[in-house]
Design a protein around this nucleic acid. Sequence first.
DNA 1: TTACGTTATGCAATCGTTAGCATAACCATA
DNA 2: TATGGTTATGCTAACGATTGCATAACGTAA
Lengths: 345, 345
Amino acid sequence: MRQTKKRVTIHDIAAASGFTASTVSRALQNDERISDATRIIIESLATQMNYRSNAVASSLRTGKSKMIGVVIPLFNRTFFASIIGGIETVMKQAGYSVMICQSNDDYESEKAAISALMRARVDGIAISVAAQTENFDHIQLLENEQIPFILFDRTHEEMEVHQVMIDDFKGAKDATLHLIEQGCRKIAYFAGVQHLTTQKNRTLGYKAALAEKGIGFDDNLMIISHLKEGSGDNAVNILYDKGIEFDAIFAASDYSAVAAMRNLQKRGVEIPKSVAIVGFSDEPFTALVTPALSTVNQHTHLMGQTVATLFMNLFQNEVDPKLMNKIILEPELIIRASSLKKQHF
Amino acid sequence: MRQTKKRVTIHDIAAASGFTASTVSRALQNDERISDATRIIIESLATQMNYRSNAVASSLRTGKSKMIGVVIPLFNRTFFASIIGGIETVMKQAGYSVMICQSNDDYESEKAAISALMRARVDGIAISVAAQTENFDHIQLLENEQIPFILFDRTHEEMEVHQVMIDDFKGAKDATLHLIEQGCRKIAYFAGVQHLTTQKNRTLGYKAALAEKGIGFDDNLMIISHLKEGSGDNAVNILYDKGIEFDAIFAASDYSAVAAMRNLQKRGVEIPKSVAIVGFSDEPFTALVTPALSTVNQHTHLMGQTVATLFMNLFQNEVDPKLMNKIILEPELIIRASSLKKQHF
DNA sequence: TTACGTTATGCAATCGTTAGCATAACCATA
DNA sequence: TATGGTTATGCTAACGATTGCATAACGTAA
C-alpha cells in the first residue's frame, strides 16, 4: 500500500514560524504589506521545508488555474508541434502552463478533450478543429460558458470568435502563380477535405491564380483526399489511370507532395522538367528530399506566439472580449528545386 | 470587464432538487446508497442545468487529479508524438487526461516543467530526459516526494526507477550487422551526444556488431553531434575534409541520415552502391525519400501504451512501487533501398 | 407494541489557499 | 495627551466536491 507522505502546506510553515497561514501566503506572494524581516524568515523556511504551493487549492480559491488548454488534431506534424512551441514560449514567460490534447481529427475526441479542459478549469482554450468536425455546438458551448477561447489555423470563419490563421488563400495563390510563371498550364491540385476552412481557402487561391492568368479550371485536375502519406501516391495513379495530362502538381500537404514525387520518379518522370511540384507547410524534411521541395511556409512559431499573446490580452482585459479578433498571418512561398524549371542556381 | 457567469455547482442542483449537496454528489457518482428515483431526478436536473463537475475542487478534496504529466524534449519528432499517442490511448480509456510539457532539450526547462506538474498535483509524471540533462537531482526529488514517475526512452539506467525503453543496443547492432552483411567494412557512425543512455547504447551496439564480425573500431569513423537536420550534412563534410574513406553510414537519427544522403548525392556518390545508409527512428518521411531509407523502428506507440499501462498498475497498487519495473521493448530493423547493395526487388 | 435492522438522506468537516475585514502596535501631529 | 494615520499581522469565511458519521423513516420479527 502506497503511503503518501503528507506534503508541506502553508500551515506547516505557519506553525514553524509562529505566523498565521495568511501571513505565510502573503509573504510567499510578495505582498507588500508583509515586512521584509518576516518575509525573509518565511521564505527561507519554505525552501528549507521544501514547500511547494498547491496549485489545485490556489486554483479553487482564485478561480484561475494559470493553465491554458490546446486542442490539436495530431502531434505528428511539425506544423502543430511548432505552433505549440510558439504558444509555450509566450505562456511560460507569463507563468502559465499549457495542457495539450489531441483530437486525432475525430469529432468525439475533440468534444471530450474540450470537456476535460473545461473540467480542469483552464483559463483559456485554443483549438484547431478536427478534420471530421462539421458541427460547432461544442464551440458554441464555450461561448455560452464564457470561457476565453481562440480558434487557430483550422477555424470556423463564420463564427464571430477570436481566431488566428494564416492566409491560405494567398499561400495557395502564390504557389499556383509561381507554377504558372514557370510555364506550367495543366496544374494538378491535390486538395484536402473541403469543409476545413484552410483547405477551402487554398482551393479558392488555386482557382484565383488560374483565373488571373486566364487558365480555365479543370475539374479533372483537382483530387480531394485526406492528404495522408499514401494519398499523394494514390492521386498520381488516378491521374494516370484516367489519362489526364498535367505538367505540375500543387499539393496542399508536403507529405502528399513528396509521395507524388516518388511515384513520378518511379515512372521515370523528370522533376521539375516534366512535372513541377509545390507542397504546403514547409515540413523540415522537404529541404532534404531530392529534388528539394518547394512549399509554403506558414510561420507556425509566430502563429503560436500570436495565439498566446491574444490570450494574455484577453486575460488582462486589454481587449474587449466582445470584439472579435481575427488575425491573419502572411504565408511565405519557399522556392526550391522541385518547381524551378527556368532558373538554376 | 469580463463578467464571469457563475458556473453551476452541486449546490445549485441541491437547491433545485430539494436534496443536499452530499446527496447530489453521491447520485452523480452512482453511489449505491442513493435510490434510483432520486438519482434519476438529480441526473436529469444536472444535464438540464448544464452541470459540469469542477475537477479542481474534486482534486483538492480527493488528492487525485486524474491527470498525468509527460515531459518530452521536443514535439517536432514523430517519435515523441507517436509515444504520446500511445500514452493517450490507454489513459483516455481510464478517464485520465494527459498534460504535456516540452523541455526543448534544456535542463532548466525540464526542471521547470516537472515543478509545474508537481504544483498541478498530477497523479504521475512520465519523463524522457533532455539532452542537456546530466544532473538527476530533480528526478530524485520526485522519488523523495513519492510521486509516481516513469522514465521512458531516454532514461537514466543507473537509477532504480521505473523505466520503459527500447533496446537501443540491439537496434544499432542489427543495423550495423545488416550493413556488414551487405558487404560494407568501413561503416561511418553518426552518433548523438553520449551522455544520453539511448545514444550510449547505440554506440555499444555499433561496436558490438563490428567486434562480432572481426572489424576493428575506427575512431575517425564515429562523428558525434546533436543529430539535428544540419549535422548529417556536416558530418559528411568532415569525413571528406579529413579524407576518411567509408562505404556505409549508420546514423543514429533519420534526419541526419537523409541530410547525409543529400550531401552524398550532390557529390555524385551512388546510394547504396558506393555508400549504403541506415537511419534510426523510422520517421514517416524515410519511406518517401529516394532511395527510401533503411531505418530502425522503435515501436513508439507501443512504448507509450506500455508507459500508460505501467502507470495504471502503479495507481491501482497492482505492482509493488518499490519494485523497479524496467521494461525493454524490441526494435525492428526496416530494410529499404538505401542499404540494399546485394538484393534487388 | 417494542426493539432492531435497513435504506435513504443530511450534517459538518475537510482538502490548501486566498482575501476582505478587523485590530494591535507604533508613531506623529495638534 | 488625545486623535488619527500607518504598518504588520490575524481572523474567518470562502472556493466546490467528498465522505465519515449521524439520523429519520420505514418495515419486520418477537
